[in-house]
């Protein structure tokens, strides 16, 4: 399963970077979103996969018994998801502004306008 998830994460990265190499502003942002998903999956996979229990202590007990998923990468990824959303939204609005100002969504044309 690790192999499959590794390939999946790699595919998200490949597609994300391919889109970032395009000249369309919109494609760039979608690429950014793919990278964000790929990274979350990457950190999660790198932190050891397990189908065991979620890191939630059962009621009435004080500690986990038996194997359980590592809570640390989960805490990392949880905030990364939300931050990724914030950054993506910001980038999106920025792109939108640039598009509105230059009337184009071709990155190369924009640099001609500003430069």
């Amino acid at each position: 399963m690790e192999l499959i998830l590794a390939i999946t994460s790699g595919a998200l990265y490949a597609a994300g970077f391919y889109l970032m190499l395009r000249r369309r502003l919109a494609q760039l942002i979608v690429g950014l979103g793919l990278l964000s998903n790929g990274t979350n999956l990457l950190i999660f996979t790198a932190g050891s996969l397990t189908r065991a229990k979620a890191p939630i202590i059962p009621e009435g007990q004080t500690a986990m018994t038996g194997p359980f998923a590592d809570p640390v990468p989960q805490a990392l990824v949880l905030t990364a998801i939300v931050i990724g959303f914030g950054v993506l939204a910001f980038a999106l609005v920025l792109a939108h502004r640039v598009h509105a100002m230059t009337g184009s969504d071709d990155i190369d044309e924009m640099s001609k306008v500003s430069g």
């Binding site: 939630i56 949880l78 905030t79 939300v82």
Partner: peptide, 12 residues
Amino acid sequence: HNAPGGGFAGGL
């Protein structure tokens, strides 16, 4: 604090 959830998920 005791089960899946929390400020992030709830807020979303």
